[in-house]
């Protein structure tokens, strides 16, 4: 009995499985190209994928309550463009202030999304589709057909170049976000309420959880991370353009899905989101190395998502069938 449960824990744990996949993937790629596993190359990869990795935390929360948010990259662009324009015209110069402004804009954007979804009962896909248009348009309107290049950004772009203790600032931000969320989701009441609402909304209501406020909260969190992502993206790529990260929300959703976050809510962990986005980053980086041109990237990404969700279903069916066989009659 005991043994069985330990075995089950290892084989049954999504995270352990993902970790194995990640390690195998890295090993396979580094056989082909030893430089892949160099510190510099890994740092580069983490920095370039920081935005996706951070945003997957927000998407994790949203998907945990059974929702989805496809407006995030528009929020990101809006926040990023606002900061870019403020810098360009010299209204602000402090890096910290820029981050605060971007995050503030993000929270407001997310709060509005959450308000529409939780209070007006608009289905998340429809609401965020609308806001995807709106915030992207705002990003263009803020820019007024201009964009901010490297020289306009001044010292702000140095943030992504600087490092503390040998680790790039951007990576530090990512790590801090993950640590905070790891604790938030596992050790705080609010974090567990998010799980409860996703697992069984009516039971949550009966046990006195304010489901509407939890929904409002997760979209606000998502917006906040979108704003943070906006500031980071401007700094990393040293430019603020209204079309930045266009279509990348699919990457974020994909990272979560690969990481085992259920589309119907209740299931998913911070570690899963981390591993999911890491796997996606490694694949993106590995493809050119193993001889695929970058144009194959999207197709392969799509196929991976499809395979992951289909394999999930097949495995679930098999385990259900197994459970049934075990039932005494």
């Amino acid at each position: 009995m005991e043994k069985k449960s330990i075995m089950k824990k290892i084989t049954g744990s999504r995270e352990a499985l993902l970790l194995v996949v990640l390690i195998l993937l890295c090993a396979a790629v580094s056989l082909r190209s030893p430089s892949f596993l160099s510190v510099q190359s890994i740092m580069e990869m983490l920095k370039n994928n920081a935005v996706t990795m951070i945003m997957s935390l927000g998407m994790l929360c949203v998907m945990l309550v059974g929702g989805i948010d496809i407006s995030i990259m528009s929020t990101l662009a809006f926040a990023g463009m606002s900061v870019g324009m403020l810098l360009k015209y010299g209204h602000v110069s402090s890096t910290l202030l820029c981050f605060l402004i971007a995050m503030g804009i993000g929270i407001i954007c997310g709060f509005l999304v959450g308000l529409v979804i939780s209070r007006a009962a608009v289905p998340p896909i429809i609401a965020t589709m609308g806001f995807m248009y709106i915030y992207r348009a705002l990003a263009y309107l803020v820019g007024n057909s201009e964009w901010a290049g490297a020289d306009a950004l001044g010292s702000f772009k140095d943030f992504a170049l600087g490092s503390i203790l040998g680790l790039n600032n951007v990576i530090w931000v990512t790590i801090i976000c993950y640590v905070i969320f790891f604790f938030f989701m596992k050790w705080t009441r609010t974090g567990r309420k998010i799980y409860a609402v996703g697992s069984n909304p009516s039971a949550a209501e009966v046990s006195g959880i304010n489901v509407k406020n939890i929904k409002l909260l997760v979209y606000s969190i998502m917006g906040f991370l979108g704003g943070l992502g906006g500031a980071l993206a401007v700094s990393i790529y040293a430019s603020a353009q209204p079309n930045m990260q266009y279509g990348k929300e699919m990457d974020v959703i994909a990272a979560c899905v690969i990481g085992g976050v259920s589309m119907s809510g209740g299931r998913g962990t911070v570690i899963g989101a981390l591993l999911g986005s890491l796997i996606l980053s490694v694949i993106a980086k590995a493809l050119p190395i193993i001889g695929f041109e970058s144009i194959y990237q999207n197709t392969i990404k799509g196929v991976i998502i499809l395979v992951v969700v289909v394999v999930n279903v097949v495995m679930q069916r098999a385990s259900d069938k197994n459970n049934l066989k075990g039932r005494e009659m």
């Binding site: 989805i68 699919m250 589309m263 999207n298 990404k301 799509g302 499809l306 969700v309």
Partner: peptide, 11 residues
Amino acid sequence: MIVTLATQIIF
């Protein structure tokens, strides 16, 4: 939603 998301990327 998730299936057509994947095929969206694939197509």
